[in-house]
């Protein structure tokens, strides 16, 4: 199943190609070199935008708009970061943090309850209910943007962070439920049976026995949900005003509206918006992979 440990297939590579395999035979050393060459290329290609943003964020304003472009900051400076945090970007950052954290929390609570019901309890129409949840997550957000805007407007929420928190909390649900179900199904039934023998209720067993066992899974799911909320753009673009811009919206609008774009400040903002996520990835790479694949992956 999806959560199989990611450390399979060690045997295959360690045995060198036997004489029976056809095709050109490369010396082990050459193959090793090629492998790491490929790894180096992949890393550069994947991280290039981040590296470029990082370099730019350390340049002086003159260097960011020199022709041809400066490739390496002569005297690295943190002034762009200070300027970004003191200006509007600091507020966008705060908006992003609040909106994403609160939404993730709400999503996690609701999704955990639903996932337990789907994974563990028997009831009629289960498959239909699950199909409903999954299929809804595939609808284009464009079919929701307009009516939702009118609802939020009539509630006078446009211009407040609740206009983001409410849709984020709900639209993160299907993915979170699918991932959590996969984690819940890994827990052996015997624990709940034992709890039932001890006279514990289903709900009690869920809260006191099962939940503590899937804490790593809860954490992984929360990270995935958080990344989705943190990066969301369409709803944020439509439902925010300058006071509630999130980081992605703020960055794009700054880059498209200002006459003289300050690339240093923009790059600093990008680096700051990405670094927490990169840190999480490097720390939790294996668990995030298993979580994402369990959820069937969306956006």
């Amino acid at each position: 199943m999806a959560l199989a440990p990611t450390t399979t297939a060690p045997a295959r590579e360690s045995s060198r190609p036997t004489t029976r395999s056809r095709g050109p035979q490369l010396k082990p050393l050459t193959r090793q070199t090629l492998l790491y060459l490929a790894l180096a290329v992949i890393i550069v290609v994947q991280f290039l935008p981040l590296i470029w943003a990082l370099l730019t964020s350390l340049m002086t304003p003159q260097e960011t708009t020199s022709i041809p472009a400066t490739l390496w900051p002569a005297r690295p400076t943190l002034s762009s970061y200070i300027e970004a945090l003191q200006g509007d970007i600091g507020r966008y950052y705060l908006n992003s943090i609040v909106a994403s954290l609160v939404s993730t929390l709400v999503t996690m609570v609701l999704a955990t309850l639903a996932a337990y019901a789907f994974a563990r309890l028997r009831f009629r129409w289960k498959r239909l209910a699950l199909l409903f949840v999954v299929s809804l997550s595939l609808f284009p957000p464009f079919s929701q943007v307009i009516p939702l805007y009118m609802v939020l407007q009539s509630l006078h929420l446009i211009g407040s962070l609740l206009a983001l928190i409410i849709p984020y909390s709900v639209f993160g649900l299907p993915m979170a439920i699918l991932i959590l179900m996969a984690f819940l199904q890994e827990v052996p039934f015997e624990y709940e049976e034992a709890a039932a023998l001890d006279g514990m209720s289903r709900l009690g067993a869920f809260v006191r026995i099962v939940l503590p066992m899937i804490i790593p899974g809860l954490f992984t799911t929360a990270v995935i949900v958080f990344v989705g909320d943190w990066n969301e753009y369409l709803f944020a673009l439509n439902y925010t005003t300058t006071a509630t811009y999130t980081l992605p919206v703020g960055i794009v609008i700054l880059s498209q509206t200002e006459f003289t774009t300050n690339f240093g400040v923009l790059s600093a903002a990008m680096v700051m918006s990405v670094v927490p996520l990169v840190a999480l990835i490097l720390l939790l790479e294996r668990r995030i992979v298993s979580g994402l694949t369990a959820g069937g992956l969306k956006g």
Binding site: T6, I42, I43, Q46, F47, P49, L50, W52, A53, V227, W230, N231, Y233, L247, P248, V249, I251, V252, S255, L266, S267, M270, S273, V274, L277, V278, L280, I281, L282, E285, R286, I288, V289, L292
Partner: peptide, 18 residues
């Protein structure tokens, strides 16, 4: 694997600006 994961985590809109 971290390199593979990276483009997923970076905000699409911000990435496009870079």
């Amino acid at each position: 694997r971290a390199a593979i994961l990276f483009p997923w985590a970076i905000p699409t809109a911000t990435n496009s600006v870079i």
